[in-house]
Amino acid sequence: MAYQMHFGPVLDRAPEFVDGTINTILLSGQGIVIGLAIGLAVAIIRVEGPRWLDQIAVAYIEIIRNTPLLVQVFLFFFGLPYIGLRLSADTSAIIAISFNLGAYSAEIFRAGFLAIPKSQIEAGLALGLTRLQTIRYVVIVPALKVVFPALTGQLTLTLLGSSVVCAISANELTLAASKVESLTFRSLETFLVAGAIYVTLTFVFRFTYWLISLWLFHRKDPARFQIAGALPHGQERVEA
C-alpha cells in the first residue's frame, strides 16, 4: 500500500516553523558569538599564557571534545542550579553550545596562530607593540584566513548540532517540529520540512561566512592597497 504524502496539514503550521527557525537562528547565533569569544580567549591562553593556565585550557578542551554535546547540555541544565544558578532551558542551551564551540574553536584558532611565522610576531614586538597588541593587529587576520574553512565547517556543525537542545525543551526548530508532528501525526512530512529548513539555513549561514571572509580578507588584501599606491615599496606582503 503506497503512502500518500500530505504536506497540507504540516504547512498549515507554518507559524510554528517560522518561530522555530527564528529561535534556532537566535540560539546558534548567540552560541556562535559567545563560543568564538571563549575560543579566542582560550587559544590566546594556550599560545601566550602561563603554564598552569594552559593546562587548565587543555583539560577544558579535552573534556568538551571527548563528551557528547547532549550530555553537556544536560550537565549545564541540571548542574547549574546546584551552584545556585536557576536558568531557563534556552539560556542553559546557549551556555552549553557556547562552551562546546569554545573548545573546538580554541584549537582551530590556535592552529591559525601557530601557522603565522615567528618573524611576523617579532616584527610587531620590535615596533614596540605589546604581545596582545601584536596578536590584535598583526596575527589575528592572517591567522583567521588560514583556518577560515575549518572554522566555518565547525560553525555549521554547531548550527546543526543545536538541534539536540530540544531534549531540554529549549525553543528551537527541532522542538517546534516535534510539536507539529504530535499535532498532525504527519511525521515524515514534518521532519522533511524541518530538514529542508536546516539545509537552507546551513547555506544561508555559509553565504554569510563567505561575505564575512570577503570583508575581512579582501579589504586587507595588500594587492589592493598596492594598486591604490598606499603600500610603500618593499613592505612585505603578509602571506596567509
Binding site: L160, S163, L188, F191
Partner: peptide
C-alpha cells in the same frame, strides 16, 4: 547530509519511515 542535523535524520528514520509501512 552534511547540511542536515543528525537528529532530523534519526527522526525521519524512526517516526517518518514507519508511516511508509
Amino acid at each position: 547530509v552534511q547540511a542536515t542535523p543528525l537528529l532530523i535524520l534519526l527522526f525521519l528514520a524512526y517516526y517518518g519511515l514507519s508511516f511508509l509501512g
